[in-house]
Each structure stands twice: as C-alpha cells, then as structure tokens.
Design a protein around this nucleic acid. Structure first.
Lengths: 118, 118
DNA sequence: GAGCTATTTCCATATTTCCGGAAATGTCGT
DNA sequence: ACGACATTTCCGGAAATATGGAAATAGCTC
C-alpha cells in the first residue's frame, strides 16, 4: 500500500544487494553491537578505503548501519532494528502467510558463532 | 561461507531491490500459486509491456519467479521456496542469533528514515 | 495460411551505480 | 601549531541497469 514503506524497503534491500555490501554487513553482524572500525573492515575485506566508504554511505543512507566516532576512528555497526524491520516487511509482503513455512525448515545447519577482532 | 551462496543471495536481493520489481513481487504474492498473466500485471501496475518483461526476466534469472504457459499467455508466480531460502539466508547471516528476535507478529512499524543518497 | 492476441526481443538512449587514486577533512598527541 | 593517522569527499571514467517504442515470435481460431 504505502509507497513510502515500499521505497524504504527498496533502499534497505539495495543496501544489501551488492557483493561488497553484503560482505560488509555480514562482517558487522559478526562483530555485533561493538561494531568495527572502518579501517578494520577495509583490511578484512581487502577493499580500498574510498570504495568501502562509498558502500558504507549507501548502507547508512538506508539506515542499515550506524556510525559512531571513537577517537579518530569511525565505528560502524549494524542497525539490528532496521534489519528486523526488513525481515518483518518481507514476511508481511513477500510470504503472505499462506505458503511461507517457518524458517527452521530451510536452515538446518548449526551456526558457528565466531567473533571477529577489531 | 561460500562465495557462491553469497552471490546467490545478492542476485535474489537485487531481484527485489527495485521499485517496479518489488511491486510485481507483491502483486504475485497476493495472486498466490495461481499466478498472474503478464498482461494482467502490466495492467495492474500501468507498466509498459517491454519494461515489465525486462524486470520479470531479471526476477526469473534469480529464480524468484516461475513462468508457465497457458494458451497464448505466460503466467508468472512467485517461487516461494526461493523466497524462503532468502529469508533463511538473512536469518542466518544478517541476524546471527544474538540480537534478532523471533519475527515479531506486530505490524512492521518500520520507520522510514531518510532518502537514498543523492 | 490469414488474422488476431499475448509477450518478448531488439535497439538506442538515459540514468544510475561502481571504482579507486588523489586531495580534503577531522582528530589526536606533542 | 604541527605532524601522523583515519576516513571521507571529489572527480572522471567504466560498467551495469533502466526505459519504452517498434519489430519479431509464439500460440489460438477460423
């Protein structure tokens, strides 16, 4: 219905719909609430600083990541609330109850909860 | 986690990360398993046939929709399994257990924030 | 086969996104 | 204020994506 909501969903989706950005997002998810320095992300993913910055800006515009300053570093972390909202939107609008089964079916594997150093 | 899987996720996400395609997808979700004729979709969304075809091809390449012929019409329907797989992927890789609560049943009060960057 | 309908492909064009080096900005310690 | 460091912005070009009209393809009926 609301075009605004759909616009938001599109921006959230396109914040993830790129290989580099999805990698960044995953890394930040692993890092958890503490987040990661921009430089650390760049190092982890072997990505030029300017490219990384471009993608982070994209993700931030969609509100999928948060930025905070700590000394001379900028720390990025995922905005889990926004991610939840996206999941909710997809559940609402892309599964429509009827056919969408509980997730556990499609995700049988145990997940390794590893931590990434900053 | 395999790059292949991530590549697939990117293609699935980008199949949804466009206003027209998200509209198409939603319409098809509503239509359910029966699907909808291409012409009907175009009519519903007031979209030129060639543009629609372009987007459907995109979605089909990502395996997010199915196509079947019925007489001279081509009927499209969402591939719910693929959608489930995408949800599973996001749950696995973008929530990582810790912060992602079970999908709240509350309506998505997702606050649309600011625009996509200029 | 002719005529009709539904849809896709083709094509040229417009727009957006992506990339990465260089320069600018901001922050800290001294 | 100065220098080292962290990150972003600027900029140009390359690549991908979007658009929609016109022509082509595929199926149906007579």
């Amino acid at each position: 219905m609301s075009d605004e909501l759909r616009d938001w969903a599109v921006s959230a989706l396109s914040a993830l719909a790129h290989d580099s950005r999805l990698q960044v997002h995953r890394l930040l998810v692993q890092a958890g609430e503490d987040g990661l320095r921009a430089g650390a992300i760049a190092e982890h993913l072997s990505m030029p600083a300017s490219s990384l910055s471009f993608h982070l800006a994209h993700m931030q515009a969609a509100d999928m990541v948060r930025q905070r300053r700590e000394g001379r570093s900028l720390i990025y972390s995922v905005n889990f609330e926004c991610m939840d909202a996206l999941m909710a939107y997809l559940h609402e609008n892309c599964c429509q109850g009827v056919t969408c089964r509980p997730v556990s079916q499609a995700a049988p594997k145990a997940r390794p909860r590893q931590k990434v150093m900053a």
